[in-house]
Design a protein around this nucleic acid. Structure first.
Length: 547
RNA sequence: GCGCCUGUAGCUCAGUUGGAUAGAGCAACUGCCUUCUAAGCAGUGGGUCAGGGGUUCGAAUCCCUUCAGGCGCGCCA
């Protein structure tokens, strides 16, 4: 609808001899009686043309050749042009929607471009917490959204299974293991202290017995590290499964070292002249690409830094010939962006090739009081506990009704208290309700397989026209959501759509003795259902058949 | 100290990238189940868009500044 209106306006500008504008601004007016779509075009042209906005608006309206799509075109306020679509136009669009189903809703914006989205990528040193849940919900919704928009999407989880943190994990488990057999063992200060460490130590004890009783950690680090992080990783996979998140690929950091990717990346940067030695360490000249400090990639002691493998990781990703990379990070890593962008540029790619989306922090509250979150100290509420307590759909919905860059307060008590009143059910219920209408209709012998042939003329009440218009505005929301990488716009749209369906249901009888009217109303319900399912699918939220 | 994010109804948050009289859900109050699902519907109240300047036809939105909160500024990850 928006697109065809934009074309009409471009045409009109052409006949007026005004040079065309790249993007004509088209919006939904704030009040329904103002029309369906509006443009402030005349106002923005008034300065350039030295004419009053209303005068320009009149000229534009007069120059529109084909007005058959519109019931009326008004000039209002300071110079808005308001368009109201004709019923015939609306009905034929709805008919197309019913024929094409979700493909009507999916504008091909991506045109098959390959985009990889990396998200969550939590260290396998402890269970997922709520912050990971937010990243995960966002990642899933965004990847579904982009996939619906014609991008070819791959979802990846990066596993930090090398380096200091997993070593600390191994040591932590080792210490608990010793203590379990009754051996005094000093528990290192910066080790992980969560209960899950003890669980892992216990299962080692069950499987291996006192085999490592007399060993020192230096003798058996590999076993403890490997065993522990694998155990945690499989727990993470379980949590993700139950939260409804799947990945296409899992990239191991360790594998990057073993396959020589890290070495190759360093060589590559050396050849391109972006590294130098100083004070016994090897540095990447990040300042040459806009970062405010150069960064160490090989330490004085010969060890690599976290950043080194990240260079290799992003190098590998970008050379796999993706058209674009998206990283979703917690906002606490924002200082890391210039560094990694610098790598992209140093490797010879435009830095826009990588898009880093920041997801803001989640403050977890219980009854208004903050719950301390510290992985090291072992005080935290896991994602598992939250989805068990609150439920995956509600949890996701809470994340997806907020802009990614807004700080989020997640109060467990509030989330639970709202669990029967939660807006997510409002949307799911609309779908379930329509299902039940269809069941009822079919039980009454009404055939519902050719609703696109229904007589739409019978959908003549304002309530029905309002719904039709809302439905036809979806592509605008979709487009905005895709271009801004903001899935939450879909969430709000679904709430609004449900918010006009429920009252309609309450006021008007769908299935009645009037078969023709029944058919046309069912067609409307079907259109709503297509949208609800499409939207919920994008958000990664379930669509229960019955509720 | 520097950088990033945030500040909108009692609470939690939207606000379509500068447009028209700023919205929704909770919470509060009043009604509605004999008819396709009451996880629903109808109605009522609720605002100095943190404060102050500026930019222009027009600002919650852009710029400056103050205040408040969060997060970063490692040869940690």
């Amino acid at each position: 609808m928006k697109k065809s209106l934009a074309e009409i306006l471009q045409d009109s500008l052409k006949t007026l001899g005004i040079e065309t504008i790249r993007q004509i601004e088209i919006k939904v007016p704030p009040k329904e009686n103002m029309g369906d779509l509006a443009t402030p075009l005349a106002m923005s042209l008034s300065e350039k043309l030295k004419k009053s906005p209303r005068k320009i608006a009149e000229e534009i309206v007069a120059s529109i050749k084909d007005k058959s799509s519109f019931e009326k075109i008004d000039i209002a306020g300071p110079g808005f042009i308001n368009f109201t679509f004709s019923k015939e136009c609306l009905f034929s669009e709805i008919k197309r929607l019913l024929e094409l189903k979700s493909s009507y809703l999916r504008e091909n914006i991506g045109k098959g471009k390959r985009v990889q989205i990396e998200f969550i990528s939590a260290n396998p040193t402890g269970p997922l917490h709520l912050g990971h849940g937010r990243g995960g919900a966002t990642g899933v919704a965004l990847s579904n959204l982009l996939a619906a928009a014609g991008y070819e999407i791959e979802r990846e989880y990066y596993i930090n299974d090398a380096g200091k943190q997993v070593k600390l994990l191994g040591l932590s488990v080792f210490a608990r293991y010793k203590q379990l057999i009754g051996i005094e063992y000093p528990f290192p200060e910066d080790c992980y202290k969560g209960l899950y460490i003890e669980d892992i130590a216990n299962s080692i004890l069950e499987e291996e017995g006192g085999k490592y009783k007399n060993a020192d950690f230096h003798d058996v680090p590999d076993f403890f590290i490997e065993y522990s992080y694998q155990k945690i990783l499989s727990g993470i996979r379980d949590d993700l499964r139950d939260f409804g998140i799947t990945f296409d690929t899992w990239q191991s950091e360790r594998e990057l070292y073993e396959s020589g990717e890290v070495g190759k990346a360093i060589e590559d940067l050396k050849i391109k002249g972006h590294v130098y030695e100083k004070e016994g360490a090897l540095w990447f000249r990040a300042t040459a690409f806009g970062d405010d400090k150069d960064r160490v990639i090989i330490k004085k002691d010969g060890e690599y830094t976290y950043f080194t493998s990240d260079i290799a990781y992003h190098r590998k990703k970008i050379e796999r010939r993706y058209d674009g990379l998206i990283d979703i990070w917690g906002a606490d890593h924002h200082g890391y962006i210039p560094r990694i962008k610098a790598v992209i540029e140093a490797l010879g790619y435009p830095k826009e090739r990588l898009k880093v989306l920041l997801v803001q922090m989640v403050t977890l509250l219980r009854g208004g009081k903050p719950v301390q979150m510290s992985k090291r100290a072992g005080e935290f509420v896991t994602l598992r506990e939250v989805i068990d307590e609150v439920g995956p759909d509600i949890t996701k919905f809470i994340f997806l009704t907020r802009r990614p860059d807004s700080h989020l307060e997640f109060d467990l008590e509030v989330a639970k208290a709202q669990s029967s009143e939660n807006p997510v059910f409002y949307v799911q219920y609309a779908n379930a309700r329509i299902n039940s209408i269809f069941t009822h209709a079919e039980e009454n012998g009404i055939k519902t397989d050719k609703l696109y042939d229904a007589n739409f003329e019978l959908l003549s009440t304002n309530d029905e026209l309002r719904i039709i218009k809302k439905i036809l505005m979806y592509p605008m929301v979709f487009e905005g959501s895709v271009n801004s990488y903001e899935p939450h716009r879909i969430t709000f749209y679904l709430q609004e759509l449900s918010g006009i369906f429920h009252p309609y249901y309450n006021k008007h009888r769908i299935v009645s003795d009037d078969v023709e009217l029944t058919m046309s109303r069912l067609a409307l319900c079907e259109a709503i259902r297509i949208l609800l399912r499409e939207g919920l699918q994008i958000l990664g939220i379930s669509t229960p058949e019955k509720m």
